[in-house]
């Protein structure tokens, strides 16, 4: 079967009941989705499947033939980061970074769906994503800032929760 990963048509040899997470990481060498709990409880493996955020650990690859899968690698490169990626960098919204790909994917889907900068609504959108470094406040700041259409890395963040790297 084939799936489209970050715009590239990829042939999948794994059995159809293999979790998409393992197809991405172990067969296709797409490493941003993380294998955390592998039971749908942490959100670290979240990817976009046909534009909707889904747990790749809960998705049998055979159930999404020809689907368009987007991971963090597909959102932007270091030189061409998306608004959400830039905001996460600017607000230091990652510590160990393990949850960050899932957070960024979920935040991207939330904002592309018209989500607001309201902290409660952002929290609801990211409710399935666990950050063991307790970095939630900076993550909320970053998503709220990204709402307004981009982020200038040269500016100073106004978040009370952030020490900005200069």
């Amino acid at each position: 079967m084939n799936i489209i990963v970050n715009g590239n048509n990829r042939t999948v040899e794994s059995p159809p009941l293999t979790p998409l997470l393992h197809v991405l990481r172990e067969e296709l060498d797409v490493l941003s989705p993380k294998a955390g709990c592998e039971n749908g409880g942490c959100g670290a493996c979240t990817v976009l499947i046909d534009g909707a955020p889904r747990r790749s650990c809960l998705t049998a690859v055979g159930s999404v033939p020809d689907a368009e899968v987007t991971t963090v690698e597909g959102l932007g490169a270091p030189e061409t980061m998306s608004d959400v990626q830039q905001a996460f960098v600017h607000y230091c919204a990652a510590q160990c970074g393990f949850c960050t790909p899932g957070m960024i994917i979920a935040a991207t889907a939330y904002l592309e769906g018209g989500g607001s900068a309201d902290r409660v609504e952002i929290s609801e959108a990211l409710a399935g994503h666990v950050c063991r470094c307790t970095g939630y406040l900076k993550i909320l700041d970053a998503v709220a800032a990204a709402r307004d259409g981009g982020f200038d890395l040269s500016t100073t963040a106004e978040s009370p929760h952030t020490t900005v790297l200069t």
């Binding site: 009941l17 592998e38 809960l58």
Partner: peptide, 25 residues
């Protein structure tokens, strides 16, 4: 297998070992 939120991890980790899986998507 419908949404897969319970069955896919069970299959992957061998907690469920059916002879056949019917995907209802």
């Amino acid at each position: 297998l419908a949404g897969g939120t319970l069955l896919v991890p069970d299959l992957h980790f061998g907690r469920a070992r059916p002879e056949r899986v019917i995907m209802l998507g």
